[in-house]
Each structure stands twice: as C-alpha cells, then as structure tokens.
Design a protein around this nucleic acid. Structure first.
Lengths: 341, 341
DNA sequence: TGTCGCAATGTAAGCGCTTACATTTGCATT
DNA sequence: AATGCAAATGTAAGCGCTTACATTGCGACA
C-alpha cells in the first residue's frame, strides 16, 4: 500500500463548500470567521483528517513557529535543565524547538546558527556573549530576535544587539573567593574551565584573579581543564604531585569540583581538613557527594524560563524587553572549612 | 534600516548566467554539473551571500532533513546523554533535530508526534513501545520512518511497524534481583517508577515480581514513585516508618536509589549494613554517592548512536535494518552486601 | 562529415499554504 | 424600499525552491 496523497487545504475547502482563504482563516484567525462556517470547516477537517503542512505555511507566512537553540552540550545538567524549561514554555505558545549542540566549538556553533537561520527560525537562543561580530551582524541583517543566556556584564565592550538573560559570572566568582579568603585561606589555586571562546569560563577566571590580587597574593595557580570528571581528576592529581598543594581549590564548576574531591580522597587527603574545595552551579551532584559542596547556586530553570519569555516577547510584539540579570547565591555545605594548619 | 530582500536562487542564477535548475543542482547534486559552471555558481553564491530557504526546499522536495524526537524529559541524564549522541550523529548527515519532551504524559506525547509530523520530519525517535495503536497507524499511513528506543521485547504482543533499538528491561531487572537473592536477601522490596503508560517501568516491575515469585517469596512491597530524588526520599521515609523495613531495596533507577540512600542515611541506617540498595541505569551519580551504587549499566550513548544509525539507514535507503538489542551489565559497587543478621 | 547517444543545461509546472485586494452579504438607518 | 457600511468571504498571486521533461552541445564512430 503506497502513500495516498494527504488532504490539503483545498480539499477541506471543497468539502466544506468555502474558499481556501476561509479555511486558512479558520485555522489561524478563527474569530474572523462566522461561527456557522467555522463549524462546517471543522467538520470537513475532522472528516478528512486534515493536518496543515507547516513548511508551506512557513514559506507563505514567513514565520515558522520554530525557535532554534545552540548550546554547548546537553550532557551538562545545567544546560539540559534550562533547555527543558525553555522548551516547555515555548510549547505553551505553540513553538517547537530546534536544538543544536556545538561541543564548545566556535566554528561548529557558527555553522549551526546559519543552518538554523536557513530553517527560518523565528528566534534564537544562544549561550554566552563572546562571538564573532560577523555573526551578530548576520543576525541583525535578517532581523532575527535572539537572546543570549548565561552571561551578563562581562566583556561588555560593545552593546550587543540581542537580549541578555544571565548572571554575572565574574561577580559570583569573586564572592565565593571572598568567602574562602574569609575562612582564612591564603594559598588558593583554581581549577578552571577552558577560557578560549568561552566568556563564562574566562569571567570566572578573571573574578578569581582579581580577588586574589586584591589580597596581594601573587600569581595564583590556575589550571584549565575540560568540564569532565575524569579530566578533572587527572588535573588534580597532576597539581597535587607537581606543585605545592594549596589549602583551598576553587573550581569553575561542580563537575570539576567533584573530580577534584574524588581524586583528593583517593590520594588520601581529607576534604575539607587537608584541602577545601568549592564548586559552581549547584547541580544535584553537589549536595550528594560527600562532603557536599560549598558552591555558587545558579538559577538554571529561571534562566531557561526568562530566556523563553524574553524571546517570545520580542517575537510577538517586537517589544524590546530589557536585559535581565539574575542573582546567584552561595550555598555553604561541607567542602569548605578553615584551613587546618 | 529595514530588512532588504534576501537573495534567492533566482538571483544567483541570474548573476551566474545559468538557470535556476542548474543552481539547484549545484547545491544538491554537484556531480551532475560540470566543474566550470559549478565554479561560476559558487562565485555568485559567495558574492550574494546566498543561503537557501529550507522551508521552500522542504516543500518542493518533500523532505525536510529534520528528525523529530519526543522524549520524556531532558532533565534525566540518561535521555540527555543519548540525545546528545543522537544529535551529533545526525549533524554529520546534515540533519537537524526537533525535540519535544512529553513529561511522561501520554496526551502530550501524541500531540507532539502529530506536530512533528506536520513539520514534515523525515524520521522520528520515540522512547518506549507502549503507545496508542492509532499513533502507529498514523505514522504508517504517512510512511514516516521511526525508531523506538529504550525498550526491547516487552509487551511485544503485536509487531511494531518501527525499528527497535533497546534493551530488555525485564531481563535486566531479573538479573539484578537474582544477584540480590544470591547475596542471601529474602526480604526485598522495590521502589519503582510510575508504571502507567511507561513500558520500561512496568517491565522492570514485572521482572522484579517474577524473580521474587520464582523464589516463592510472597507479595513483595512495590512502591511506585516519580523519578525525583526528593519524592524518593519521602517514599523511602514512608516505607521505613509504616512497614517492616526490608533488608534489600531494589530501585527502578539510580535517581530513586540515590533518594533512598540519602533518606536511609538520614534516618540513621547504614547502607549496606542495615539495608542494601540497588539502582538501575548507571548514571554518573551512581559512582559518586557514598556508598557507590550497585546497579545495572545501560549503554546510553550506544542507544543514541544506534538509534541515529538505524533511523538514517531507513531514511536514506529505505533499507530495513533489523531491530537491535543492546546488552546491559551489572556493576557491583558498595551499596549491596550480604544481609547482616 | 554526418549521425547517434549521452551528458549538461534549460523550461516551467507545481509543492501547500497565506494574504492583499476585490467582492458579496447582512443589517441598521432613513 | 433604498442606502451605506462593516463584516464575511472569495480570488488569485505569490512564497523560494525542486524536478520531470525538453532541449542543446559535444565527442565517438562509421
């Protein structure tokens, strides 16, 4: 049995005894059609099992009801969570979500943005500000609304032509470093993310360095490492055996912190007695590992929700919504203590 | 500055001095065009910054290069991970991914499937077999290739008109229950997922009950609970105070197991001395919690990868790929021991 | 040199919708 | 009953591509 042609708008129109325009209106602006005809059309739709062809609709109407998202990876819970909420909100407004993940690779991201634009997305979710200006020009030329999530305020040399929904990575990092300093630590190192092409990672490093400098502590050790537990373990092992181990290790996110904790423990160190370790993000794992992590809480779901709202507002009304800065907070748990001399 | 009309195929054709058909061929079947013209066209494309309109292409060509996926949620690492791999593989073949999450809700899932089909997806990824037969009919009528991931072999009353890429949830569960029995436990309870409309969850329950029955142990306690740490904690607390606490608790997944472990510990129980607890999935958290979880390892990335390959094979060549059953294994860690009398 | 056959290119008809504009309808007003 | 006007509906021109089919070009061969 081969595929019989699917019913189209025209078939519905014929069966209902109206024009295609009327059927189209029934589907898109029902209130412009008188109730009686609307019913007749509905009946024809049901009878035929008609479903609109969204590609044709997008082509004719020049809007797709699709939002694109380019994120570094879905494997990190922070993005997965935000994306989940983002998608749920979009669904409420009948938008669908086209996702692409760039694996933190600049060229991949650029290619994906272009591809999504070719698909005719009505809006775009991007992570982080730092990006080839050409991309922004490109987006602006085509007048594609987009929101930049996760970063706020860093590298803000030029105003960006998109909406910002994020938090201040720099400031958040300085505050947790401050806490570590307050506990009395003076020998502090950092296990950071890869700063290249990643403004969140570099802002966190900058925040760390600034606060350290403020206390007159020189040349802190900063090791860059991919966001992966095993790589973090290796990085920690390396730090531990080649350098003088610090009394406190600031990690750029919880994944790194977990790796550091596990490796420290397997090297016979007690956390936090021998070494304090802090995280960043406050993902589930932070409260489950023992000792639980003192970390920076980031409102991931809020990021997803507000990103969606901001984008929708821009798309629907051309309303320009102002940028939105979300607050982070510090969650004190067990992995940070005073330095035990 | 308002949006100037974007260059279209026709503009490229004019500039290159060829017909639109030739330009189209350059883009889609370059080898059908002689090198000289191909170059000329390429030049025109670059000069104009031309990008194809995928909606028009999809409409005309009747294929969209979009794959749809409907998963329960992105927040569970198991789906996020599989989806990530799935997407990476698709990207290699120039497909994009339209995702929807159903929050384990049947009606939501159905609506999303229909929506994706309206979008003209070339193929579909679905989780689990159990589904209203109407959906399968619908998919078959439209000849949409789809793969069903995660389940294999359960409820296989009728052959399903899609490809299966999964593992045997029932069998995997019986094998871990067997292990628990082998350790000497005879007072065993289960913390299960919500079985309604979820064949993985019900197959795991069935596997548990079957093995328990095989040993002549009567009426085991089975508590259904959403996949959420806090809800699992509450469920465990409830079990602990209202019923005779078993010596071993089988959990339907790691999230539940983590909740159970945490709650057991906060109630002053030692795991595994006072109570053994097992998981299912082997997500990261399983090896990080203390005690680390004895659990069933599920090859999530393989699921994602093979799902993608199977789907692609079906789309590209109409090749019918045979169903694929992946193997699970048991990872023994610390949360399971002999019952201490 | 003429002919045949195939490879390269062109022509033009849609793909299934939306929407500007034109027309008709129904109803209040006089 | 005639008039005017707004609301409801119809007409038809695209939206930007792909592709079946028609045409052209070109080298091989006799």
């Amino acid at each position: 049995m081969s595929k019989q042609p699917l019913p189209k708008l025209e078939d519905v129109a014929r069966l209902a005894g109206v024009s295609t325009a009327t059927v189209s209106r029934c589907l898109n602006q029902p209130n412009q059609v008188v109730k009686a005809t609307r019913k007749r059309v509905q009946k024809a739709v049901d009878e035929l099992g008609y479903m609109p062809n969204f590609n044709a609709r997008s082509l004719a109407a020049k809007r797709s009801k699709i939002i694109g998202a380019v994120i570094p990876t879905m494997e990190n819970a922070i993005f997965a969570r935000a994306l989940q909420v983002f998608q749920e909100r979009l669904t409420e407004e009948d938008f669908d979500l086209l996702v692409a993940s760039s694996s933190y690779k600049k060229e991949v991201e650029e290619k994906q943005i272009r591809s999504l634009v070719s698909r005719g997305v009505d809006g775009l979710l991007l992570i982080g500000i730092k990006r080839d200006p050409k991309i922004y020009e490109f987006l602006q030329e085509r007048e594609i609304p987009f929101v930049i999530a996760w970063s706020f305020d860093e590298h803000m040399k030029a105003p960006v032509p998109g909406q910002l929904v994020g938090f201040n990575n720099y400031k958040a990092m300085t505050s947790i470093v401050q806490l570590v300093l307050d506990k009395g630590h003076r020998n502090i190192a950092m296990l950071a993310g890869i700063a290249d092409n990643n403004d969140r990672a570099s802002a966190r490093i900058a925040g760390f360095k600034a606060k350290i400098a403020e206390y007159g502590l020189k040349d802190p050790v900063v090791i860059e490492c991919e966001y992966d537990i095993d790589k973090a373990r290796k990085a920690f092992a390396n730090l531990h055996q080649t350098l003088k181990t610090p009394t406190a290790l600031i990690c750029a996110n919880d994944v790194l912190a977990v790796g550091a904790v596990l490796e420290a423990q397997s090297q016979g160190l007690n956390v936090p007695d021998d070494i304090s370790i802090t995280g960043f993000d406050d993902i589930e794992i932070a409260s489950i590992i023992s000792p639980s992590l003192t970390t920076v809480h980031v409102p991931h779901r809020m990021l997803g929700l507000h990103s969606a709202n901001t984008l929708l507002a821009n798309i629907n009304a051309g309303r320009i919504v102002t940028d939105m800065e979300l607050e982070t907070s510090i969650i004190e748990r067990q992995s940070l203590s005073n330095p035990k001399v």
